[in-house]
């Protein structure tokens, strides 16, 4: 009864979704940190530029951004393959959200701990590296994982610019079998499993952190 050929196809699409999303996250999180640090540092032109960038990114639909990157960049002379455009789109988009997440945990960092760090002779950079950052990333884990699930849920945007991800694979199968229900429902289940797992992992991590360090 089960169409293993279809499942295999969908698995291929799922893998594409996962690896592209994975790269997006791997680039977006540290990029977001750099943006947040720039923003918090209050360097004159740069921190305002970051603020504008973040504001614009957070208001732009991922699909619009994907079209902009894919078509817009080629008009500017830079021809990008759909996959590269997809990687850029997802990384850049998610970095804006991670920038806000990092910024929140860096900015409402308890002052008394920073004071202790200063009293012990740590420079601002040392205090950031040894005291603020280790706690900030642990405290940021829940909203970061949340943003990761959002990234995966907005990843079908890349199907529109030609990347054969899980959604596009499902569309293709539906198109040539004239039977849309199996591929789409299977794809939905696969996405749901991935997202559910991430949410589970997030809850586990949250509990572990509170258990070990208390509320950071």
């Amino acid at each position: 009864m089960v169409d293993w050929g279809m499942i295999a196809n969908l698995a291929g699409g799922a893998l594409t979704t996962l690896w592209i999303s994975g790269v997006g996250i791997a680039v977006g999180v540290p990029l977001g940190l750099m943006l947040a640090m720039t923003r918090v540092s209050r360097v004159p032109v740069l921190s305002q530029a970051v603020a504008v960038f973040v504001s614009v990114m957070r208001a732009t639909p991922v699909i619009t951004l994907a079209l902009f990157v894919y078509f817009g960049m080629s008009a500017m002379g830079l021809t990008l393959s759909p996959i590269v455009a997809a990687l850029i789109t997802l990384s850049v988009n998610t970095s804006a959200f991670h920038a806000e997440i990092w910024r929140a945990s860096i900015m409402d960092f308890p002052q008394n701990q920073s004071e202790a760090a200063t009293a012990f002779g740590m420079s601002r950079f040392q205090a950031f590296r040894l005291i603020v950052l280790p706690q900030a990333w642990r405290a940021s884990l829940p909203p970061m994982v949340n943003e990761m699930t959002f990234l995966i849920k907005s990843s079908p945007a890349i199907a529109v610019i030609g990347v054969v991800d899980l959604t596009r694979t499902a569309s293709r199968i539906a198109a040539y079998t004239y039977d849309p229900l199996p591929p789409y429902i299977s794809a939905a289940i696969i996405y749901a499993v991935v997202v559910f797992s991430l949410v589970r992992i997030q809850r586990l991590i949250e509990r572990m952190i509170v258990h070990r360090y208390g509320v950071l």
Binding site: I63, T149, I152, K153, S154, S155, P156, A157, A159, T167, A170, S171, A174, D179, P180, L181, Y184, I185, A187, A188, Y191, A192, V195, F196, V199
Partner: peptide, 19 residues
């Protein structure tokens, strides 16, 4: 909440007519 919106849109557009 765990299914991408685009997929849901495709499902409404293609799957509902099929049933």
């Amino acid at each position: 909440r765990s299914v991408p919106f685009l997929l849901l849109a495709y499902m409404a557009y293609y799957c509902l007519p099929a049933i």
